[in-house]
Design a protein around this nucleic acid. Sequence first.
DNA 1: ATGAAAGCGCTAACAC
DNA 2: GTGTTAGCGCTTTCAT
Lengths: 343, 343
Amino acid sequence: MPRSGGHISAAPPTLADVAELAGVSRQTVSNAVNNPDLLRADTLARVQDAIDKLGYQPNRAARSLRTRASHLIGLRMPALQEGTANAMMDRFVHTFVEAAAETGYHVLLFYGDPADPLDGYDELLRSTAVDAFVVTDTHLGGQQTTWLQSRRARFVSFGRPWTQPDAKHPWVDVDLAYGAEIATEHLIERGHSKIAWIGWHKDSLLGEERRSGWTHAMHTHGLSTTGLASRTEDSISSGKAAADAILDETEPTALVCASDTLAMGVLHSLFERRLRLGEDIAVVGFDDSQVAQTVPPGITSVRPPLEEAARELVKALEELLATPSYAAPGVMLKPVLTVRGSS
Amino acid sequence: MPRSGGHISAAPPTLADVAELAGVSRQTVSNAVNNPDLLRADTLARVQDAIDKLGYQPNRAARSLRTRASHLIGLRMPALQEGTANAMMDRFVHTFVEAAAETGYHVLLFYGDPADPLDGYDELLRSTAVDAFVVTDTHLGGQQTTWLQSRRARFVSFGRPWTQPDAKHPWVDVDLAYGAEIATEHLIERGHSKIAWIGWHKDSLLGEERRSGWTHAMHTHGLSTTGLASRTEDSISSGKAAADAILDETEPTALVCASDTLAMGVLHSLFERRLRLGEDIAVVGFDDSQVAQTVPPGITSVRPPLEEAARELVKALEELLATPSYAAPGVMLKPVLTVRGSS
DNA sequence: ATGAAAGCGCTAACAC
DNA sequence: GTGTTAGCGCTTTCAT
C-alpha cells in the first residue's frame, strides 16, 4: 500500500469517495474491504485501484460504532518501580504490543491509581473503548479478575488466577517453581552444595512458589536446606541485609535469589566484603533484567519466555473475541536459565 | 462516580436510556454531560441522577465519529534494547501515560517495523484513530517529523528537531550538554583532574552534544582533555574496550560516560582489573537507569526530568489540539545529577 | 432552558 | 454480484 496517496486534504476520503471514483455503490466498496470474495475479479480490481489512488482507510470510529468492536485491547500500566531491577512488565508490554499488531489489534495503555487496583477499567468498559483487557498483576489478589468477570468484561491474564481455582478466563503464566529448580540444579552441577535461598515473605504466593523449586531441587539431591533460607522484602537493602546474615551464619557458596533485585542486594553485600562475584561465590537471580545482563560479570538469571507468553495471550484473545463463550485451559510456560559469569 | 451501576446487561446504557429515565430529551442529556451550565440546576440534578443510576458513560466510537476526535494519542513503541542499560524510554512512556490521563487522553501504543521509522503512522492517521502523535526518537533523523508535517498530522516530539532548525512543531528536550557539564564539575569538585570521556561516534548528534559539556567544563577549569576522550558504539563490550584503552594509556582517575550502558562497560573493565568502583576510580553515567540505581555502590548518573518532560508535552498537545495553528517555542529542560557511591 | 431534525462513516440485512 | 435502506450513539444546528 503506497504511503503517499497524493492526497493531502484535511478530510480523509470516505467510502463514498471511493465508490464514486470506482463507479460502484458504497456497499460494494465495503465488501471489497471486508469480504473481497463476494466481488467479481474485475470489480474488485477497479475498487482496489480507487482505494489505492485515494489512500482510503476505513474510519475507525464509524466502523467501531457499527460493529461494536474497537480492535483495541486495554492494558493498565504496571506501576513503575524505581530503585529495583524489576522491569519484566516493560518487556512484556513491548512484546505484547508487537504480537497484538500482527492480528490487527492495538493497545490502549491506561493509567490507574496505584492504590486502587480497579481504577480505570470501569470507564473504558462503559464507554466501550476497548474490546478486552489484559490483566497483569494477578498475584496481587484476584480483585481485578473477579470484578471484570462480574461486569462480564472480556479479558485474559498474564499470571494464573492464584486465589480463584475456578476462574474461567484464559490465562498464561510462567512456571517459576521450575525456574528455581533449574537454577538450583545448575549450581549443584557446578559443584555447590551449600546453596542458600533469599526470597520473599511467606504471604507472597509468587515467593512461596519459587522457593518450593529450590527446596525440591535441594532435597532431590539429598542436600540440607536448614539455615540456608531467608525471607524478606523485595528491595536492594533487604537483599543485602539477608545476604549479610546468611553469609555470616551459614557460609553458603552459592545463593539463589527470588528476584534480580534481591540478587543486587546480595551484590552490595559482596561488594562490602570485597568478595568476587562468580569466583568467591555464585549468585543466581530471577527475571533476566537489564541489570542481570549488564552488571559484571553478568548475573545468571531465570528468564521468563515473555515473547511466547504474549503470543499465547493474543491467540487466546482472538478466540475469546470470536467466541463469547470461549473457555480455555490456562497455559503454563517454562522459563530458561541464562547462564552468565556470576555462576 | 459509583463503580457498580447495578446494571449488568450486555448493552451499555445510551443517551436515550438516560433521557427516558430522567424524562428529558436526548440533547438535554448530552448538554448535561458536555455543557452543564446550559441546564437549570434542578434538571441537571435529575439528569445526573439518571446517569449515575444507569452508570452511563458516553460511547466513545459514537462521540468520535461525531466530533472527529478520538482523545487518543499515538505513541510508537521504541525498540527494546536488551543487553544495554537503556530504559529511559520506558520511564518516559510511564510518565507520559500518567500525565495524559489527567487531561482525559489515553495512549494508543502501536508497533512499527524497526527498520522503517515511518511504519505504523500512516494507517492510524488515515483511519483517524488518533488525534495526535508523540514522536520520541528525533535524533535518528527528522524522517518521522518531516513526513508527519507533510501529512499535516498533529504531533509533538520528545527530542529537539536536530536536523530541521525551522521545524514548527512543539517539542521538549533535555539539555544533556549541561548534564555532562554538571557531571564533570561534580568530579572536579571531588578533586579529580584527569577526567576521561567515553562517548559515541562523531556522527551521533546526541553524543557530540554531551561531549561538549565535558569539554566545556574541563576547559573552564583549565584542565587538559588530550588523550582523555574516546568515541565508540553504545554497548557494554565497546565501553569496556574503550575503558581498557584509556586506563592503560592515560590513567585517568575518573570517567564520564555518555550512557549508563557505557558506564557498565567501564565496570566490566574495572572488574577485570580488580579495581574498586568509587575508591580506586570514579565513574559517572547518563540516564539514571535501574542499573545505575542498583549496582553496588550505585552509579552517579545524570537524570533527565522525564516527569516534567511528559507534563510539558501533554500541555503542548492540549494547546495544539485546541488551536490548529498553534506554534510554540521548544522547551529545554535541565537534568539533575544523582550522586551515588561511584563518585 | 429544552426539544426536533439531521448526519458523522460505516456495515448488516435484504432486495434485485 | 451489486445496490438500497436503515441505523449504530452521539453532537450540532436550529426552533421553540
